[in-house]
C-alpha cells in the first residue's frame, strides 16, 4: 500500500469523497431508519413513562429528563454505527470495491480517515435529529435539557467514535464479514464481562465465595478491570457519566481525551494493518 507522506489537498479530497460515499450508503441503508425508529420509540416510551410517573407521584428527581432517552439513543445508535463500521471494510474487501478504490489516488490514511469522519458525521446527524424531536417534546411538556444531559451528549461523541474506531480496527484486521462480526462481538463481550466481572463472579455457581480459585479469579479480574477502565469505551462512558454527575470537569475532559486518543490510536492501527495487509480479500 503506497503512502504519500504529504498531507496534501489530494488526500483530504479523497477522504472527503470516501466520507460522502459512506454517508450516502448510510442514508440509503434501511438499517439507519430502523435504528432511528427504535431509538425514537425507546425515547418516547421513557419520556411518557416519566410524565406518567410525575402525574402519579407529584414529583421526580432526575439528573435530566432526557438522560434515559439519550442513553437509549446512544446505545442503539452507537451499536448500529459500530456494527456498520465493523462490517464496512471487510465487506468492501470481500466485494472487491476496496481494491478498485485503491487503483486510484487514495491511500490508507485518506480511506480510514474518511470512513471514521463519515461515521462521526452520521452520528452527529442522527443526534441532531433526536435533539429536534426532544426539543419538541420539551416544549410541549416543560421537561428541560439539563447541563449534565448536554455534557453526556458531548461525551457520547468521542465514546461512540471510540466504539466505531474499534469496529473499524476489527474490520481492517479481518478478511471476511463473518469473521469481523464474530471478533467484534467477542471483544464487546469480553469488555462487558470485564466491566461487570465482580457482579458475574457473584453469580458463579459456587456455594462458597471464598473458594480459593474464585478469590484468585476475583483478584486477577480486579487487576485487569482496573487496567481496562482506561481502555474500554463502556468503562470510559461510566467514568465520564460519573464525572458529569460529580461535576468533575478534569475527569470529564480526561475521559473525553482518553476516548479521543483511543480513536486516534485505533485509526492509526487500522491504517497500519491495511497498509501491511493490503486491500485484497
Amino acid at each position: 500500500m503506497g503512502f504519500d507522506r504529504r498531507l496534501g489537498k489530494g488526500r483530504l479530497r479523497a477522504a472527503w469523497l470516501v466520507c460522502q460515499r459512506d454517508l450516502r450508503g448510510l442514508l440509503f441503508s434501511p438499517g439507519t431508519y430502523l435504528v432511528v425508529l427504535l431509538a425514537g420509540l425507546a425515547a418516547h416510551l421513557f419520556l411518557n413513562t416519566l410524565a406518567q410517573s410525575i402525574a402519579d407521584s407529584g414529583l421526580a428527581v432526575l439528573s435530566g429528563a432526557f438522560n434515559l432517552p439519550i442513553y437509549s439513543v446512544l446505545f442503539v445508535t452507537g451499536l448500529f454505527l459500530a456494527l456498520a463500521s465493523v462490517t464496512s471494510i471487510s465487506r468492501e474487501r470481500e466485494q472487491g470495491t476496496l481494491e478498485v478504490l485503491f487503483y486510484g489516488p487514495i491511500d490508507v490514511a485518506a480511506y480510514i480517515g474518511g470512513k471514521l469522519v463519515s461515521f462521526g458525521l452520521a452520528y452527529l446527524g442522527l443526534l441532531a435529529l433526536y435533539l429536534v424531536c426532544y426539543a419538541l417534546f420539551a416544549g410541549s411538556t416543560g421537561f428541560a435539557f439539563a447541563v449534565p444531559t448536554w455534557a453526556v451528549i458531548g461525551l457520547s461523541i468521542p465514546v461512540v467514535m471510540h466504539v466505531v474506531a474499534l469496529g473499524t480496527f476489527v474490520s481492517t484486521a479481518t478478511r471476511r464479514v463473518r469473521a469481523s462480526l464474530a471478533w467484534f462481538l467477542l471483544i464487546l463481550l469480553v469488555l462487558l464481562a470485564l466491566q461487570f466481572s465482580p457482579d458475574l463472579l457473584e453469580l458463579a455457581p459456587v456455594g462458597n465465595r471464598f473458594y480459593p480459585p474464585l478469590r484468585l479469579a476475583r483478584i486477577v479480574l480486579e487487576r485487569i478491570n482496573l487496567a481496562f477502565t482506561w481502555v474500554s469505551p463502556f468503562a470510559l462512558l461510566i467514568k465520564g457519566t460519573e464525572a458529569v454527575r460529580r461535576a468533575d470537569a478534569l475527569l470529564y475532559v480526561y475521559t473525553a481525551a482518553i476516548s479521543s486518543c483511543s480513536v486516534l490510536v485505533l485509526a492509526a492501527g487500522s491504517m497500519y494493518l491495511m497498509w501491511k495487509g493490503g486491500v485484497r480479500s
Partner: peptide
C-alpha cells in the same frame, strides 16, 4: 511503496 497521488492520477 511510496507512490504520490499525482502519479496515481496518471494511471
Amino acid at each position: 511503496h511510496a507512490r504520490e497521488f499525482a502519479v496515481r492520477r496518471r494511471l
